[in-house]
Design a protein around this nucleic acid. Structure first.
Length: 489
RNA sequence: GGUCGGAUGGCCGAGCGGCUAGGCACAGGUCUGCAAAACCUUUUACACCGGUUCGAAUCCGGUUCCGACCUCCA
């Protein structure tokens, strides 16, 4: 099996991936800040990194997958000093901050389960790792790269930049940041305690009325946003681990700061590979509160949003996401979703049919070619769209064989079956949608189909058509074959 | 304003120097009492202007649009 190559944002090149420790892979992915219900934009990351993980496991690697829950420290950036997102939401909903965190953590995990992503090996939360964060902040202070000011602690970016390349990951030049537009305005907002506007908070002093606060060597307060990931990834994956992932929006300042923090503390960039997925747009526009085009996942699954013409299933969404390469933006529209829905159905039908294929003595097609192409495509920076194209080729082969227009020998029929199991279900993580009360429903349907068959035998086509049309109107698909009729939803 | 990344046929989306993915939609055909499904066939491309090259959607330059990020802000 050839080697996996991945695009590394840090070096801006595609590099061969080899685990640091034998067959064990450490994968850290930035999880959500749990202050609101999951929306469409939250889905892509879990799906993309789930496929990466599944593929690595398919190749015999063992993956320790860590995904954090940010339940403290992420501030709302609107003027003043900024307020913690969870605290703000708690105030709005008049509940404890941890109730907010709990409710939306559950909602996020529900979403992940519906999307059929494998649960992370470890799911640490920021509020449960205050000690580790304080420890790391102390180490950074001892290294001379952070300073205390009025009960808060800030990372000293300018000093750090004298010996390190601050900005390499996000492609930013410090001088530009200093001279960047908007700094004048921001400086007016009372950032006096920072030595430099580019310094970022490691620890924030909490006002007495602040509802989330912990004791620290610098008084009561709460950790900054970036330090949690540095502390938790280090605790569970070590000073250096294989892959750190997240959305492209986290490139700066979040991941840039993580690198600075870890380097200040351990002397190393914590991750060998930095992998970032792109964003989802809607009808060509980005999702934004101001555009009022944000769609929550529950709205998508229920179909009750003004922009939605119908409900879409979690697997349709998963398939839709994987039909695009993870580093490109993905445009969401009803037309595109409907296309994915039908395409996926086609693959699933073929996959279900493969077990009933006639076996011939002659093999007119080598399924192994398809398999090898799948491997090649995945190895080239997870090119799932190409894998899917290969699966459609497999579906065509399958359908042709079913129609006896193409002969497959036993070996190839079996390989075709394994192809769908391994690639569609295993690596792409598509599961056939479960339908409730399947057997009872099937009984009713068989009854109706028998009645319709009788009507047809009696040449009562008016009745047989009526049965079919009304079933069609209810969403059923009736297929008339040589050996009788079958149905699907 | 700064820094990156994009512009591919009706829609979504691969490809990144010659062999022009794939899905959906459309059209024709096979099958069928009629449909559906399936299969076969087929039409629409590479934002614009220059250049490099025997040859460019793919490389270079310019133009126009679009997006992300630019500090405590998914």
């Amino acid at each position: 099996m050839s080697d996996l190559r991945l695009y590394n944002t840090y070096t801006r090149t595609v590099e061969e991936f080899h685990p640091l420790h034998d067959k064990n892979v450490g994968l850290y992915v930035c999880g959500p800040t749990v202050y609101g219900p999951p929306h469409l934009g939250h889905v892509r990351g879990p799906v993309v990194f789930d496929v990466l993980r599944r593929y690595m496991e398919f190749q015999g690697l063992k993956v320790r997958h860590v995904r954090n829950i940010t339940d403290v420290g992420h501030l709302v950036g609107d003027g003043d000093e900024g307020e913690d997102k969870l605290s703000k939401q708690a105030r709005l909903e008049q509940v404890e901050p941890m109730e907010i965190a709990q409710a939306y953590t559950l909602a996020y995990n529900d979403m992940c389960r519906m999307m059929n992503t494998l649960p992370p090996s470890i799911e640490p939360r920021a509020s449960g790792h205050i000690l580790e964060q304080i420890g790391m902040i102390e180490a950074i202070i001892n290294a001379g790269l952070a300073y205390e000011a009025n009960g808060s602690v800030y990372f000293d970016v300018l000093t750090y930049a004298k010996t390190h390349d601050y900005g390499k990951l996000s492609g930013r030049v410090l001088e530009d940041l200093i001279a960047g537009a908007g700094n004048e305005a921001r400086e007016l907002e009372g950032q006096g305690e920072k030595r430099n506007p580019n310094d970022f908070a490691l620890w924030k002093k909490a006002a007495p009325e602040h509802i989330m606060q912990w004791n620290s060597p610098w008084g009561t307060g709460y950790p900054g946003w970036h330090i949690e990931c540095s502390a938790m990834s280090r605790k569970y994956l070590g000073d250096i681990f294989d892959i750190h992932g997240g959305g492209m929006d986290l490139l700066f300042p979040h991941h840039e700061s993580e690198i600075a923090q870890s380097t200040a503390c351990t002397g190393h960039n914590p991750a060998r590979f930095w992998i970032h997925h792109n964003m989802i747009t809607i009808n060509g526009q980005k999702m934004a509160k101001s555009l009022n085009n944000g769609i929550r996942v529950d709205e998508l699954f229920a179909g009750n949003h003004p922009l939605l013409e119908q409900a879409y299933s979690p697997m349709t969404l998963r398939f839709f996401i994987l039909q695009a390469h993870y580093r490109g933006t993905l445009d969401f529209s009803n037309e595109a979703l409907q296309a994915s829905d039908k395409g996926l159905q086609r693959l699933l039908n073929a996959a279900a049919q493969v077990k009933k294929l006639p076996v011939s003595d002659i093999g007119e097609y080598a399924v192994s070619d398809i398999w090898n192409n799948c491997v090649q495509s995945m190895n080239e920076d997870l090119n799932t769209p190409q894998v899917i194209a290969q699966l459609f080729e497999a579906a065509r082969v399958c359908n042709q064989a079913a129609d006896e227009k193409l002969k497959l020998d036993r070996e190839n029929v079996e390989l075709l079956g394994r192809l769908f199991d391994t690639w569609l279900l295993g690596i792409l993580g598509i599961k056939a949608e479960e339908k409730g009360h399947e057997s009872a429903l099937d009984g009713v349907m068989q009854l109706l189909l028998t009645m319709r068959a009788e009507a047809k035998t009696n040449k009562n086509y008016a009745l047989s058509d009526e049965i079919r049309n009304k079933l069609t109107a209810l969403g059923f698909t009736i297929k008339d074959g040589k050996d009788g009729s079958s149905w699907s939803l």
